[in-house]
Design a protein around this nucleic acid. Structure first.
Length: 333
DNA sequence: CTCATTTGACCTGA
DNA sequence: TCAGGTCAAATGAG
C-alpha cells in the first residue's frame, strides 16, 4: 500500500518537476516574444501567469519533497538540471528594454566590433535558452558567421535578423550545440530585441486584422520565397487557418522543446549547412500547424487538439498557454 | 542575376 | 595575448 502511495507521489513529483522544468527553460523565449509585442493586458497576464505557475510548481515541489518520500532525487535532479541549463536568466522582462542606440555604433563604424553581451556589459538585452530546434523561434535569421568555441565540441553559429538591412533590426542570436544526443540540444543566445517586429507584425496585422505574432513569415512553408519576395513587398499575409487557430503562434514558437522536439528534430539537425536553408528551410518544416499536429498526436490525446481548434484565433493567448501546459504534461505519457 | 551561406581574416574586450 | 564576435569576399543555388 505504502509503496503504491509512495510511487504515486513520486510520479506526481516527477510530473510537476517536468512541467516546472519545461516552463522554466522556455520562459525566456516566451518573454522574448512578449517583449516584442505591443504591451497588452494579455501578454502581461500571460507573463504573470507563467510566473505564478512557476512559483506554484516550485512550492508544490518543495512541499512534495518535504514529505517523507523515498525518492525525491529524481525530480530534484530534473529541476536542478533545468536550473543549470538555463543560462543567464537575465530576465528579459527587465533586460529587454530595447536600446537600439546601444549597438548602433557598430554599424556606423566599419570596424569589426565585438558586441558586448549582458554578461559583460550588463546593458544590452541578452538571454538564452535551450532547445532542440534552435532555428525555429519565429524570426527570420540570416547566418553571418560560424566559429569554433573553446571547450566545445561543436561550432557556434551566428545569426542576425534577416531584416537588419531593411529595418536596422539589431537582433542577433548564436546557436551552440551542446551535445549530440537525440535530439541534440542547442543553446540559443539572443542579443538585442527585434526592432523589425513592428513593421513585420504590422504588415501581417494589416492583412489579417490580427496581431498574430512576432513571427511574420514562419507561418507558411515558403520561407525562402517569403524572404526573397517579401523583403521589399508585403509578407504574403496568407495566414493559414490552422495557424490562426493558434493565437499564440509566436508563443508557440517559443516552445521548441516542449512543442516541437518530437518531430522537428530532423529538420533542426539539418540546420545551416545545407546551402541556404538555414533558418528558412528548417522553418518550413515546421509551420505552426504541423508543429501542433506532431505535438498533439505525440501526446496521444486528441482533446487538446480539439480544444485548440475550437479556440478562436487570437482570442485567448492564455488559453493557449493553458493548453500548452496541459498538453505538455500529457505529452510525457 | 540575385541573394544566402561559407569561411578565413580582422577587430575588440578581457 | 587569447577568445569570441563580426565582416566581407568567394561560392553556389535558385
Amino acid at each position: 500500500m505504502d509503496c503504491c502511495v509512495a510511487a504515486d507521489r513520486e510520479h506526481a513529483v516527477e510530473v510537476v518537476a517536468q512541467v516546472y522544468e519545461r516552463i522554466k527553460i522556455q520562459q525566456p523565449l516566451l518573454l522574448v516574444h512578449c517583449s516584442s509585442l505591443p504591451p497588452s493586458a494579455t501578454t502581461q497576464l500571460a507573463q504573470s501567469l507563467l510566473s505564478e505557475a512557476l512559483r506554484a510548481l516550485n512550492v508544490a515541489l518543495s512541499v512534495m519533497n518535504q514529505q517523507p518520500s523515498p525518492a525525491p532525487a529524481t525530480p530534484t535532479s530534473v529541476v536542478v538540471k533545468a536550473e543549470r541549463q538555463l543560462l543567464s536568466s537575465s530576465s528579459p522582462s527587465h533586460g529587454a528594454a530595447p536600446d537600439p542606440g546601444e549597438a548602433i555604433p557598430s554599424t556606423a563604424r566599419r570596424g569589426k566590433r565585438r558586441r558586448t553581451t549582458v554578461e559583460a556589459g550588463g546593458k544590452t538585452s541578452s538571454w538564452a535558452g535551450l532547445t532542440s530546434v534552435p532555428y525555429e523561434d519565429g524570426y527570420e535569421w540570416r547566418k553571418y558567421g560560424e566559429k569554433r568555441i573553446n571547450g566545445t565540441s561543436f561550432t557556434r553559429s551566428y545569426f542576425r535578423c534577416t531584416y537588419k538591412d531593411d529595418t536596422g533590426c539589431l537582433a542577433t542570436k548564436h546557436v551552440q550545440q551542446k551535445d549530440s544526443s537525440d535530439p541534440p540540444v542547442f543553446q540559443v543566445t539572443y542579443n538585442n530585441k527585434h526592432t523589425c517586429n513592428n513593421s513585420c507584425t504590422t504588415t501581417a496585422a494589416n492583412s489579417s486584422e490580427r496581431v498574430i505574432s512576432t513571427n511574420p513569415l514562419i507561418i507558411n512553408g515558403h520561407h525562402r520565397a517569403a524572404v526573397n519576395n517579401v523583403k521589399q513587398e508585403e509578407p504574403p499575409a496568407v495566414l493559414p487557418p490552422l495557424v490562426e487557430a493558434s493565437s499564440a503562434l509566436a508563443f508557440d514558437q517559443s516552445f521548441p522543446i516542449g512543442m516541437q522536439q518530437l518531430q522537428q528534430q530532423p529538420c533542426g539537425t539539418a540546420r545551416d549547412y545545407h546551402g541556404r536553408h538555414t533558418p528558412s528551410t528548417t522553418s518550413s518544416c515546421i509551420s505552426g500547424d504541423s508543429c501542433c499536429d506532431g505535438y498533439y498526436s505525440a501526446g496521444g490525446d486528441m482533446a487538446p487538439q480539439m480544444a485548440a481548434e475550437e479556440a478562436s484565433p487570437g482570442e485567448d493567448f492564455l488559453h493557449d498557454l493553458e493548453l500548452f501546459l496541459l498538453c505538455d504534461s500529457f505529452k510525457d505519457y
